[in-house]
């Protein structure tokens, strides 16, 4: 069944608490996407413990490879390349995927493609429809909150990012105060839909003349409100608390995104990352995008918002076409970042 036009990428993702291996055809079709999640393990500790994460990755890695190939009904001979996340993420966790990917690439003499985890989140969109350039991506997850401008393919430029907590991190922290275990994004989202924005928490930096975010002030305001009520034995409505928190997050994310779209007209806006699964945020951007008649909104499907290797394979295929290669020395880069867009007028 092997055809000359068929590019098959075996991809690896292990940057945090999911071990994932996928086979992607021609950069846009998922043949398999095996994800072994460690959430249950880290829930014991209320968050991801890096050494525990590394230990789980090594338990899972080769069985994930086998499952991915079996489900895709392909063999090593069919593969064109191996792609792997090399950052950002937890160094010990990243190293398991990297070492395994390097071993497979060497054993079968395949090219090795280094993939930025955030490019992977953005390229999850490619598994739904081709990305059209120029494009903008709002990447929101437990570790990241970034606006990324992509003037052409394989050019990623940060135009704004969080100055403190990531949006997903803020969800986990206020979740703890509400008695919701990590990961708190989904339960807080559900709770928020049953409440009203009555607390009017601060929208930090919403009116600042930049595209940056800040969520630590919001988090503190939330925690102070709850602690103050506890001290005077007042019972606050949890649904209203969640709704008020979520509304503040969504307002800032969408206001900044709208402003970015005005300054950088694009054909496509991509919402990606774990927090992209948030229903409130999806609804709001779906509404806001209507003002931009030349911009299409691409919501990464819920099944591909979290960390997975399919998205790494999609980004890997693009990099493969651009001749991006790594050799056997490839190491983890836990603080890997895109370049900032040079904006002389803001200096």
């Amino acid at each position: 069944m092997k055809s000359v036009s068929r590019d098959l990428i075996l991809s690896f993702e292990s940057s945090c608490d999911e071990t994932s291996v996928a086979v992607i055809e021609n950069g846009d079709t998922i043949l398999s996407n095996v994800v072994a999640t460690q959430i249950k393990s880290h829930q014991r500790f209320g968050g991801v413990v890096p050494e525990v994460a590394s230990r789980h990755h090594i338990e899972q890695i080769t069985s994930c490879i086998k499952d991915a190939l079996t489900q895709a009904e392909v063999d090593y001979d069919d593969l064109s390349a191996v792609a792997v996340t090399y950052g950002p993420g937890l160094v010990g966790a990243l190293l398991i995927g990297i070492t395994a990917a390097k071993a497979v690439a060497w054993a079968h003499q395949l090219p090795l493609i280094p993939v930025n985890h955030l490019a992977g989140h953005i390229y999850a969109a490619q598994l739904v429809a081709p990305i059209e350039f120029p494009a903008m991506a709002l990447v929101v997850s437990g570790g990241h909150t970034e606006l990324v401008y992509m003037p052409v393919e394989n050019k990623f430029e940060i135009i704004g990012e969080t100055r403190d907590d990531a949006a997903g991190e803020a969800y986990d922290k206020i979740g703890r105060v509400l008695g919701i275990n990590y990961p708190a994004g989904k339960p807080v989202d559900e709770l928020a839909h049953r409440g009203q924005d009555t607390f009017n928490f601060p929208r930090a930096m919403d009116h600042d003349d930049n595209f940056d975010f800040s969520f630590s002030g919001l988090k503190s305001a939330f925690i102070n409100t709850v602690h103050h009520a506890d001290q005077i034995h007042e019972q606050l409505n949890k649904a209203d608390l969640a709704a008020s928190f979520q509304q503040a997050v969504i307002d800032v994310l969408s206001d900044k995104t709208v402003r970015a779209l005005r300054e950088f007209p694009v054909k496509q806006l991509i919402l990606a990352g774990g927090v992209a699964a948030n229903k409130g945020l999806r609804d709001r951007l779906t509404h806001d995008i209507q003002r931009f008649t030349n911009t299409k909104l691409e919501l990464v499907p819920l099944s591909l918002c979290g960390d997975n290797a399919a998205m790494i394979g999609a980004a890997g295929e693009m990099l493969y076409r651009h001749d991006v290669r790594a050799d056997a020395r490839l190491n983890a880069d836990p603080g890997l970042e895109f370049e900032w867009l040079k904006q002389p007028q803001q200096n």
Partner: peptide
């Protein structure tokens, strides 16, 4: 161990 088990498994 990751290198060894992956090489053994993949070959």
């Amino acid at each position: 161990t990751t290198a060894a088990k992956t090489i053994a498994a993949t070959l």
